[in-house]
Computed example of a mutant assay.
Amino acid sequence: MKTNSFLFVNLIYRLKSFRDVAVLMFLLEVDADQKEYACSASVLSQRYLGNQISARQVEKAIKDLCDLNLVSIRVHANTKTYFKVNRDKVLSLLNQPLPERMPGLDDLKFPFLDKWSGAGEMPQSESA
Rank of each mutant, 00 (worst) to 15 (best):
P99W: 00
M25C: 04
L94E: 09
N4I: 15
L68D: 08
S5Q: 14
E126K: 07
L24C: 00
R47T: 11
L15Y: 10
T79R: 14
P103S: 04
Y48I: 05
D67F: 10
D31N: 12
Y82P: 00
D88F: 08
V85E: 06
I73E: 11
R87W: 03
K80Y: 15
K80E: 14
T81F: 00
L93D: 11
F26Y: 14
Y48V: 06
M1T: 12
G120F: 02
V71T: 09
A77D: 12
K84Q: 12
L24Y: 01
E100G: 03
Y48K: 14
F110R: 07
N4C: 15
S127N: 06
V43E: 08
Q124F: 13
Q34F: 06
R14T: 10
N51Y: 05
N78T: 15
L108P: 06
D20C: 06
I73A: 09
D107N: 10
T79P: 04
S42G: 02
A119V: 00
A22M: 14
N4T: 15
P97L: 10
L113D: 10
E100S: 10
K109H: 13
R101P: 01
A41G: 05
V9M: 11
L49C: 00
K89I: 02
E126N: 05
D64H: 10
K80N: 14
S127A: 07
A77R: 14
V23K: 05
K84Y: 13
S45T: 03
L44G: 08
A61L: 05
N78D: 15
R56P: 12
L15T: 07
F83W: 06
I62T: 12
D114Q: 00
G118S: 04
L44Q: 08
L93A: 09
V30I: 14
P123C: 03
Y37T: 06
N86C: 13
A32E: 02
A55G: 09
N95C: 04
E100L: 08
A77S: 13
V23G: 04
M102A: 12
A32D: 01
D88V: 09
Q57C: 12
F112G: 07
A22D: 09
L24F: 01
A55H: 12
L27R: 03
S5G: 07
D88H: 08
L49D: 02
K115L: 02
P111T: 10
L94F: 09
R101Q: 11
L91M: 05
E100Y: 07
R87Q: 08
V90K: 09
N86M: 11
T81G: 00
L65K: 12
N95T: 03
S54H: 00
A55D: 15
A61S: 14
A119E: 03
Q57V: 09
Q34W: 05
L113I: 06
F8A: 10
K60E: 08
F110Q: 06
G50S: 15
Y48H: 15
V30Q: 15
R14F: 11
R74A: 05
A61P: 03
L93G: 09
K115A: 03
L108N: 15
P123K: 05
L28A: 10
G118W: 01
N51F: 05
Q52M: 13
T3N: 06
V75T: 14
K35F: 04
N86A: 13
V85I: 04
T3R: 05
H76F: 02
G50D: 15
V9Y: 07
T79Q: 13
K115N: 01
